[in-house]
Amino acid sequence: MSDRPVEEMSFEEAIRELETVVGKLERGDVALDDSIALYERGAALKARCEKKLAEAEEKVAKITQGPDGQAQGTAPLDG
């Protein structure tokens, strides 16, 4: 179990750790107290993943360039 706060994890990190947690719980070789802590961590990880998945928001913009050719801002993409 990593000590990294769940809130800072990317989706991939969170789901990878969640898989590890589930695997450990399924093997059933964890002490009862540890299994409860593990379960709580798993629940937090799952919540984190769900939050990242809920952030599925499409936002499309077009870069506008300044006179120096660098990105200046965005504009809607008209497709």
Partner: peptide, 23 residues
């Protein structure tokens, strides 16, 4: 694919709850 991830996640959650309950 988001839907697949959601399904995976739900499955993981279920497995976790089940194994915890089982334990």
């Amino acid at each position: 694919v988001r839907a697949e991830l959601l399904a995976d996640l739900a499955q993981l959650g279920a497995r976790m709850a089940q194994s915890q309950r089982g334990g």
